Simulated assay, not measured.
Amino acid sequence: MTENQDSRAVVALRDVAVHRRSSGQEIVLDGIDWIVRPGEHWALLGANGAGKTTLLRLVGAAMYPTLGSVEVLGDRLGRVDMRELRARVGLVSAAQKVPLEATAHTVVLTGATGTVQPLWREYGSAVRERARVLLAELGCKEFADR
């Protein structure tokens, strides 16, 4: 992989390891090299405890590696304000609880603020219309109010 090819990466992990210390030293990930370029689609498969969620937390700028380097959208973890980087990353987790009464339109709106709970004052008419357009593009406009 040349430096020029790496610079276009959406995500670049180089010799990444994540160690957790609970009872002794348990290695969660070790020696991970992974490049994701614009337009690529990936699926992570593995047994429970294999490190899939840990890997996604790294690329979602939700945690740091123990060893190695992680670059997300051109910024290296440890050299960038993680809060600012997370604002540019779309990460959906089962740990995030969407309000049960939220409509599909409301859920799409929350993407504009990177939140799970709606921030109603932040959604002007342009943001609300964009959410409707996105639902239509996904073939889900009939679910907007459900």
Rank of each mutant, 00 (worst) to 15 (best):
A136C: 09
Y123F: 13
A102L: 01
A136T: 09
H105D: 08
T103H: 15
Q96L: 11
D75N: 03
V133K: 15
V116W: 03
L77C: 06
T103G: 04
W120L: 03
Y123R: 14
A95V: 13
R86W: 11
R132D: 00
V72K: 07
G78W: 11
V98S: 06
R146Y: 15
R88H: 07
E84R: 14
K141R: 07
L119M: 07
L138Y: 06
R88I: 05
T103P: 00
S93N: 09
R132H: 02
S125K: 15
R86N: 12
P118F: 01
A104R: 10
L109N: 02
K97S: 08
K141A: 12
E142L: 08
A104Q: 07
A144I: 00
P99D: 03
L91V: 12
L73K: 10
D81N: 15
E137D: 05
W120I: 04
V108F: 09
A95K: 05
A112M: 05
V116Y: 00
E122K: 15
L77V: 02
G139S: 10
R83F: 06
L91S: 06
E129T: 15
R83H: 12
V127C: 12
L134S: 00
V80F: 10
E84D: 09
E84G: 13
S93W: 00
F143V: 00
R88Y: 03
R83V: 04
R121H: 13
P118N: 06
G111E: 00
G111W: 03
H105W: 11
V108E: 05
R132F: 00
A136W: 05
E84I: 14
R86Q: 04
H105E: 07
V107I: 15
A102W: 07
L109Y: 08
V89D: 10
K97F: 12
H105C: 04
Q117E: 05
V108W: 13
R146T: 07
R79V: 03
A112P: 01
G124P: 08
Y123C: 13
K97R: 14
L119Y: 12
V116K: 01
R79P: 08
L109R: 07
D75S: 11
V92E: 01
Q96H: 11
L73C: 00
R88V: 01
L77K: 01
A131F: 01
R128V: 11
L77A: 03
G114E: 01
E84Q: 09
G74R: 14
D145G: 10
A95M: 06
E101D: 08
T106K: 06
G124T: 12
V89I: 15
L91G: 08
P99A: 05
T106M: 11
W120S: 07
E122G: 12
T106S: 08
A144S: 05
G124M: 04
L119C: 12
R83P: 06
L135P: 00
R132I: 06
T113A: 13
L77W: 08
R79W: 07
C140R: 14
T110Y: 13
V92A: 01
L109T: 06
V127M: 10
L73R: 14
A94E: 00
L85D: 04
M82E: 09
P99M: 04
H105G: 02
A104K: 13
G114F: 00
D145F: 14
V108A: 14
